[in-house]
Amino acid sequence: MPILEVNNLKKSFDGDSILKGISFDMEKGQTLSILGSSGSGKTTLLRCLNFLEMADDGRIKVNGETLFDGMKTSFSENELRDKRRHFGMVFQQFNLFPQYTALENVTLAPRLANPSKDKIDIERESRMLLTKMGLPDKLNHYPHQLSGGQQQRVAIARALALKPDILCFDEPTSALDPELTGEVLKVIKELALQHTTMIIVTHEIPFARDVSDQIIFLDRGVIAEKGTPSQVIDSPTNERTQKFLANY
């Protein structure tokens, strides 16, 4: 059974149709990359999966459980929290909490989510995550004391701490200086090798080819092309995909 099934997902803003029926599914442990030019709807797609935006129509299923089916489009705060639990999100702008240290950024949500769990355990797991991100010596640094690449790696640890079924990245390296993208891509690749289920929106084509099991090319709200990296990147059949890739 696929871990994620998305069916005919639609979203419009003020009458502008942004997602025009997106369907795909992915297996547990896989990495899916989403490519597409600016404005094609990549961020909107992730935000609908995360329920930061409410889709208009279609279906979202995780582990066979229907989270969204277009019948009901308004949920209580608690219902939304339950749905969002399945997804982690790493933002382009990191969005770390400035008043907390790297470690506190990671422990905050697990502590609030499991008040009965031992704080020491949560802290140990969080330290391990930050160590895995290559930041064992930055635990007590505040976000403004970290480079962009380090901040983004804290953000990844923070998302992983809640053990989401699927971890989403929205252009995780687009806000970084070129010399810092490498360190972030490296930890994402590491996660892919350990079979973390991930959806990555990115403009880093060689990286996408390298880590993905599946690639989707999104064009003006529709999936123009979908397949393995070699299918989509090396021998695209869709004219728009060809044009897009030619520019890279």
Binding site: L52, R84, L96
Partner: peptide
């Protein structure tokens, strides 16, 4: 949004 996706 970061707080929301973290379930706060």
């Amino acid at each position: 949004e970061a707080a929301q996706v973290l379930g706060l």
